[in-house]
Amino acid sequence: MESITLKKLKERFPDSIMETHSFRGDDTAIVKKEDIFKICEFLRDDNELLYNFMMDLTAVDYYGKESRFEVVYHLYSLKYNMRIRIKVPVPESDCTIDSIIPIWICADWFEREAYDLYGIIFKGHPNLKRILLYEEFEGHPLRKDYPVRGRQPLIGPKN
């Protein structure tokens, strides 16, 4: 039994939804990155969905795959008590995606964090700079090719 969210998404955006699944009951839609803004807006505003919470935004580095990164959104609808996960593949060659701050304001810091740790550029973000690490830090530590002990001290020895 397909959930209402996935059904409506497929009806409304037949070309942008690349794949859907419900592994362990988590509804997931993999969408094209050009349409992420439209899809999020639809999910928030449609009367039968009303995903008003953006619970989480993160990225995953599938090192070695064709489109290396995946930006993952977890949404929650308070009224209908539903969750959905939206995944957007982002290739390394064009490591950008539209910012969704106009839809959910709390995406601001989450996007900064994804930029800080994975190096994904969010187009349209008003203040895209490092949040957890410092400006002098080079590279993005959660990428799989960044060494675990790649320390870049501001002061003191590099041990």
Binding site: V148, R149, Q152
Partner: peptide, 11 residues
Amino acid sequence: DNYATVQGIDT
């Protein structure tokens, strides 16, 4: 023991 943490303040 990773990229973010100072390995002891005696450094």
